[in-house]
Design a binder for these strands. Structure first.
Lengths: 225, 225
DNA sequence: CCCTGTGAACTGCTTCACAGCT
DNA sequence: AGCTGTGAAGCAGTTCACAGGG
């Protein structure tokens, strides 16, 4: 896969040395990517902005504006080349790297995440599972053996783990985040219902927290038929 | 954005007949609520905008602006009354109703959600579990017996279920959503990695999808220390 | 003084509408 | 003729900075 960027004569290293995309655009790219994979599996070679927008749950003007930030990968009068667009978005999101993920906390949610096929199927590889509970250490989930959290530094280094997923109770989350950062992890995905603090240079995104009652109140990604 | 109006005679029961709050504000209220509960448990009676903002991971100006939309529940020179603010936010979010939730799909993720204490502990009560797989029907999880999806209409009516949580594979999600809507469910929380379409008048929010790779790229709720 | 509540400026996102390429 | 790519307009959310009550 040649990853040359049109107009980008410098930085040819692996890091996506891409221009700043609007935050809101980046947030939608994974959804476009998912829709594109569906389209590709269904045998579509091209798709119009209208079609892709519908599949991703946005309006077509927004979609075109978003994609225009990546460059011109569409053909006027025709639409977008599905395969080409997939490649571009994956490049922009850094998914061509197939980064190693460590999952901490193998309770109910941790099990669900470890077993979630879609997690590993695109761009990410769960490389290690950790728990603080000795009775859980040694359990085999989806081909991986649960390790004790104490062994995190060593394993993180060996596996080149750059991403940590926290699926522990809230009380343990900050401590786990600190250990992840200390082990060289720069991106943390937090499923615990609490705010984490991480040093500058690391990123930390809070996901759901099933308690997010907000979602029960107002429309957000609602679609009409 | 269909909002129940104060003078709307069609919805006379219990709908929070409150003025329109900015979407972004509503999205943050649950986080404030969680932080407030923590503060209350820690024995705090009052909290400053600065303190609450830090606990919720936002800046204090934003927090004050958000809370000002609810009315004046703070005291200048002092701060906010924790208990009063909790009550107000719960009211605005409609959490005083303790609405009944149906969870569809008791795979790994469904189990995690069914067992998640925080889910039920504030404002929501999981009233029924469903699955399409006959071999799963009858299983007892957290005191609830898994029902077959065919019995949804009957049970939904009996339990006055207003909220549906979809934790099925993506392929089944739209069909489940249709069945939920047909059974009178007006709010759907979708954990499957796909866009759902629901009729006008219903709301549907997509949650995580662990594949949301976006979160590994750019800052979002990152906090510095 | 302290800390809330808020007009006003600002920033960024969305939508519109159409020019321009195929 | 059809569909993308994009300036320009419009709108929502954030931040600033300070007025004003306790």
């Amino acid at each position: 896969m040649s990853q040359q960027r049109p107009g980008d004569s410098s930085g040819r290293h692996a890091v996506p040395a891409l221009p700043d995309l609007p935050e809101a655009t980046v947030a939608r790219l994974p959804e476009y990517l998912r829709a594109l994979h569906n389209l590709a599996e269904a045998g579509n070679d091209t798709v119009s902005s209208e079609g892709l927008a519908a599949a991703a749950g946005v309006n077509s003007a927004k979609l075109r504006k978003d994609l225009s930030h990546l460059g011109s990968y569409g053909t006027r009068g025709v639409g977008y080349d599905v395969a080409l667009l997939i490649e571009q978005i994956e490049y922009v999101l850094g998914l061509h790297q197939r980064r190693a993920v460590a999952l901490v906390g193998v309770g109910n949610l941790g099990h669900a995440l470890a077993g979630y096929a879609g997690f590993g199927s695109r761009g990410f590889r769960i490389a290690a599972l950790f728990d603080a509970d000795p009775s859980r250490v040694g359990e085999r989930i989806n081909g991986l053996v649960v390790q004790h959290i104490e062994d995190l530094p060593e394993i993180a280094a060996a596996e080149s783990i750059a991403i940590g997923v926290i699926a522990t109770p809230a009380a343990a989350a900050q401590s786990v985040a600190d250990q992840l950062v200390a082990a060289g992890v720069t991106s943390i995905l937090n499923f615990a219902p609490c705010v984490l603090s991480v040093p500058e240079g690391s990123t930390c995104a809070r996901l759901i927290s099933p308690s997010s009652c907000r979602y029960f109140r107002s429309t957000s990604t609602a679609r009409h038929r």
